[in-house]
Nucleic acid binder design. Structure first.
Length: 404
RNA sequence: GGAGGGGUACCCAAGCGGCCAAAGGGGCCGGGCUGUAAACCCGGUGGCUCAGCCUUCGGGGGUUCGAAUCCUCCCCCCUCCA
């Protein structure tokens, strides 16, 4: 890659970044890196419990890719040790303890997905049990002595929980310290992550200083809101768009985000620059639907292909604009004498229980060949060429006569 | 260690002997409408062999014709004092 000036390098790094603390130190590090020819070490913590990456992760991975392209070293930390503690950031729910095998398995899936965004071969991968697992009680106390309780309680999550009488466990208090120790162990120059990690990263700086190391730079990227438009994208809230999801699913999920989020997705996921975003804003006012469709198209293209995007768009229009059946749907065998509508819906997995299937039917949510079927006693005998069952807005199946 | 408060369905939160499968909100699901799986409006939301039955209100035991509601033991959480 052509040599950029420090200013240009900094501009690349700063794109779509919320905080860079402190910028002067980064400039100094960049200068020194050029002089010594040693790339900066950029730490990124990987969660070994959730191998499904989504667009929210992508925002940060894309940033890492930018930095990698500038010639710096990305260091992935697999938190196999801290995974047993559970990061207190956000919701606090006890996470299951993972076995070594599970961690390795998750890590494998994780990197398969990360590989879609940046070059794993050029990155360094470390497991934090390597150093945390070797710590003695003495070491832990020494680490714990680098921070105070009141400073720990400055953290937003903690102070809120403390005020609201929600328990905070000691091990959760220790978490940021261990994460900080990781930075020391790998000699991080920069630590990157979402803005919710700011506190942990700051603790990392303190730990590094306490152990006589130059503190890392903190680089945070915005948290992308999920399809609900309110909360940050996360698997547990089920408002996420996974980067490995099939094209049709991905396209549909993008179409389901609130209109207000469209510009933000163009910015954070597609990396549009200011002038492009102005155009998008204008287009959004004039024709929101088509603009959102363009977003969906571009996102599918990014993670799959131009061809997949085209097909996903056509399929979406076919189902939701023209109200037609999809070109491809699961087949369900019905005996010649027919089968009860509720049983069919339940067996297809279109309802979680038979009661739910009954509700769907009686509320008018089931159609066979375009005709509503509201009687839960109805017995369906498919036409000779097959019939189309539609449940809700987007669940379809082809019913065919077959002797079982 | 002492004193108080609390644990209710996917989440938050009412109920405090029968009318409670349990108010209300969120979420989710369905319908209508539409520019989309947007927004908005309406309805539904434990399960089943469904006008009936079975399981649910931290866990066990008990009182009662009858308990989420009363008693008792246990587990867990919070606050204040020490």
């Amino acid at each position: 890659m052509a040599k950029l000036s420090i200013e240009e390098e900094l501009r690349v790094i700063k794109k779509n970044v919320v905080d860079l603390i402190p910028e002067e130190e980064l400039i100094a590090k960049l200068k020194r890196s050029r002089e010594t020819g040693k790339p900066l070490r950029v730490k990124y913590g990987a969660d070994p419990t959730r191998p499904d990456l989504h667009l929210g992760h992508y925002v940060c991975l894309k940033k890492l890719k930018d930095i990698q392209d500038l010639g710096h070293k990305i260091v992935f930390i697999i938190g196999d040790f801290t995974g047993m503690i559970g990061d207190p950031s956000g919701k606090s729910k006890a996470r299951p303890r993972l076995s070594k095998e599970e961690v390795m398995e998750n890590a494998k899936t994780y990197f398969e997905q990360v590989g879609k965004v940046l070059d794993i071969e050029k990155a360094e991968v470390r497991y934090n049990s390597e150093w945390l697992g070797r710590m003695t009680a003495h070491d832990v106390i020494e680490l714990a002595a680098t921070y105070t309780v009141s400073r720990m309680l400055e953290r937003d999550d903690f102070s809120k929980r403390f005020k609201n009488g929600i328990p905070i466990y000691i091990h959760e208090i220790l978490y940021p310290l261990f994460q900080g120790y990781d930075s020391y162990a790998i000699e991080a120059d920069i630590e990157a992550g979402g803005t919710d990690q700011t506190f942990n990263f700051l603790v990392g700086r303190e730990v590094q200083k306490a152990f006589g190391q130059e503190p890392q730079i903190i680089l945070t990227v915005p948290l992308l809101e999920g399809t609900d438009g309110k909360n940050k994208m996360s698997k547990s809230l089920d408002n996420y768009i996974g980067i490995t999801e099939p094209p049709n699913e991905m396209y549909g999920k993008v179409m389901s985000i609130p209109d207000e989020l469209v510009v933000r997705y163009f910015k954070l996921v597609l990396y549009y620059d200011e002038s492009q975003l102005k155009e998008v804003e204008k287009a959004m006012r004039e024709n929101p639907r088509d603009t959102k469709a363009r977003l969906a198209y571009e996102i599918v293209r990014l993670f799959h292909s131009e061809d997949a995007a085209r097909r996903a768009a056509a399929e979406f229009d076919r189902i939701f604009r023209e109200r037609q059946a999809p070109s491809d749907m699961p087949e369900f065998a019905v005996p010649p004498e027919g089968k009860n509508i509720v049983d069919i819906i339940y067996e297809l997995g279109f309802a979680r229980s038979k009661s739910e299937a009954r509700r769907i039917v009686s509320q008018g949510g089931a159609k066979v060949d375009g005709e509503k079927v509201t009687n839960i006693e109805a017995v369906i005998v498919p036409k000779e060429e097959g019939s189309v069952l539609k449940v809700g807005k987007r669940k379809f199946a082809r019913l065919v006569v077959k002797n079982s």
